[in-house]
Design a protein around this nucleic acid. Structure first.
Lengths: 195, 195
DNA sequence: TCGATTGATGTTAGTTCATAACAAGTTATC
DNA sequence: GATAACTTGTTATGAACTAACATCAATCGA
């Protein structure tokens, strides 16, 4: 039960992920086979599947959701739900952006431009939606969140996704947190004019 | 070039779709192989792929989007964008619901409960989002829709999806257009209380 | 120190989705 | 009635993924 295993596992896990991203960048996602990734990381293709349930999961994994839930819950419950989510996200966004801008851009681009990944992204987003829903609802109640909370949560996820998409489309030149503010503005001002 | 072909093609297409849905209902989606569907429809598995690009597409296909775009465009441009989409959708929904309730329920349930389909549903939804965006923007302008329109479109899709999900979860007992109205309400009243 | 156990890994073989190349049948057209 | 166009079947292939079993290294008990 030593920590020996843990470190070794972590190392091969990282080796696999790094090999995968490098090969995806060089030859594209679909052109890169799992066998090739495994070979590059010095393991067999079976080992790959022991670390990641599918090829897509190498890219898909992301662990912001628990943090988001907490941030939303920490917001004063007097605020309207949409505001709680907005303020929660925007309180953390500038820091995250500053620290992980590069990785975020590469990963988002890969996710948005690769059809099979784009598909499975929905699952990842539904995780964020659930996080928002839980953050909005009272942990004491065991019931499923009311429709209104779920709508707000899904709309926020949609707005944020749209902001990230726009950011990626312009090559990551803009200031992502700013785009997110604009997106929330569009959501909160029902009287906005269209172009 | 006779119509002969058309009818024959339409027939095998329907045979494939019907066989697929029947087998999905009987044995589940993942347990049903393409070869089995083809055999049941009396053709080879290659023929299946000549009619549907993938197994998932048998379920995924839906052609409401062009109608939605037109309905949104027909709305007075003086209304706020979110209202235009809402009124457009709700003007058609009751009729659609009355005529296709059963099919809608079965298909939605299959879509929401089958992981691989749930994934690819995102693509279908992105089609609806584009329809809303186009309906909201002036056809004269060649530019990409502004962020605000895209956010509104994506939020509406999210709200509608949430309504359908809730409807499926309660077994289709509720009145779907009513749930959709509730969803839009939650989107338009930023001061709503949570439960 | 030795042997048993545990857990990670490799090997091999198989299933399924999906695509491609080519052959064969059927219909339309001249 | 023969040929061209289209549809379908056959066969082969590639890649994702799974399962069964063998193997190897590290740990623990004696």
């Amino acid at each position: 039960m030593a920590h020996w295993h843990e470190r070794k596992k972590e190392r091969t896990r990282n080796a696999l992920r790094e090999a995968a991203f490098r090969l995806f960048a060089e030859h594209g996602y679909e052109e890169t086979t799992v066998a090739r990734i495994a070979a590059e990381a010095g393991v067999s293709h079976m080992t790959f599947f022991r670390y990641f349930p599918s090829k897509e999961d190498v890219v898909l994994h992301d662990d912001y959701d628990p943090m988001l839930e907490e941030l939303v819950r920490a917001q004063p419950s007097g605020k309207p739900p949409l505001r709680r989510v907005r303020d929660a996200v925007m309180s953390a966004m500038p820091t995250v952006y500053e620290q992980e801008r590069e990785v975020l851009l590469i990963r988002s681009r890969l996710l948005l431009t690769t059809p099979p990944l784009r598909s499975r992204m929905a699952e990842s987003l539904s995780g964020s939606q659930t996080a928002f829903e839980r953050g909005l609802s009272d942990p004491a109640e065991a019931e499923a969140p009311p429709l209104a909370s779920r709508v707000v949560a899904s709309a926020c996820v949609a707005a944020l996704t749209t902001a990230i998409t726009a950011w990626v489309e312009e090559g990551g030149t803009g200031y992502l947190p700013g785009l997110m503010e604009q997106a929330f503005d569009a959501l909160e001002t029902p009287g906005a004019r269209d172009g």
